[in-house]
């Protein structure tokens, strides 16, 4: 297997937590990983992305080539659009619909959704709302991971055990809440799949 994932968001939204969970699962399966991150100035509310590459074979480049990303997983709708040149033919876009409006001239949300719908069956998720239902808005990331789970090359069980590993120091309540959020996202994804 060889998988390229672009994680996108705005500095401070915590896309690296999503990467960490997928990494935990990939390590457990003995796969190779390369994960390029953005540190420094952009972390202050700027556009941030992470290139995550997982493969059974040796990986050379830390960066994903244009037109070869199997998944764009974004926690902010405008940011999902920024990386469309990286999307492979038939690649999937999974994005949260909650905008981070910290720039002047933030485009109209409907226009953003229209652009997203030019991709092949994008999955748009009200992550904040589902996270609140899971118990804490801060679990939005795990809602998004759940929604993208079928496209990560990992099974839900593998990802859930990744969540357990990542949050084990924070106690059972935190783990449960994050897994609840993850399952909410997963349900949405399964719903979309069964709608076909």
């Amino acid at each position: 297997m060889q998988l390229n994932i672009i994680l996108a968001g705005v500095g401070g939204q915590g896309i690296l937590t999503i990467a960490s969970v997928i990494n935990q699962a990939a390590i457990h399966k003995g796969l190779h990983i390369r994960q390029a991150e953005v540190h420094g100035m952009s972390q202050r509310g700027g556009a941030v992305q992470s290139h995550l590459r997982i493969s059974a074979r040796k990986i050379y480049s830390d960066l994903i080539s244009r037109g070869t990303s199997h998944l764009i997983l974004s926690v902010e709708p405008l940011e999902a659009l920024r990386y469309l040149p990286y999307l492979a033919p038939g690649g999937k876009v999974v994005t949260a619909t909650d905008p981070v409006v910290n720039i002047t001239g933030y485009p109209d949300l409907e226009a953003i959704f229209a652009e997203l719908h030019r991709t092949d069956r994008p999955l748009l998720v009200s992550a904040a709302e589902h996270a609140r239902q899971a118990g804490n808005i801060r679990t939005s990331n795990m809602v998004m991971l759940g929604a993208a789970a079928p496209f990560t090359g990992m099974t839900p069980e593998e990802l859930e055990s990744g969540i357990e590993k990542l949050f084990h120091k924070k106690g059972a309540d935190t783990i449960d809440m994050n897994i609840r959020a993850f399952r909410k996202g997963l349900e949405l994804s399964q719903q979309q799949a069964s709608d076909t």
Partner: peptide, 30 residues
């Protein structure tokens, strides 16, 4: 990056979709 090397060899790099025009820059901020 990989694409610049491929182009140096005269290979065509298949981009995904173009970045839509509505996408504005999001610079860092205080």
């Amino acid at each position: 990056d990989t694409d610049s090397i491929a182009r140096a060899f005269g290979r065509h790099v298949n981009h995904g979709l173009p970045i839509p025009e509505i996408v504005s820059n999001r610079p860092p901020e205080l």
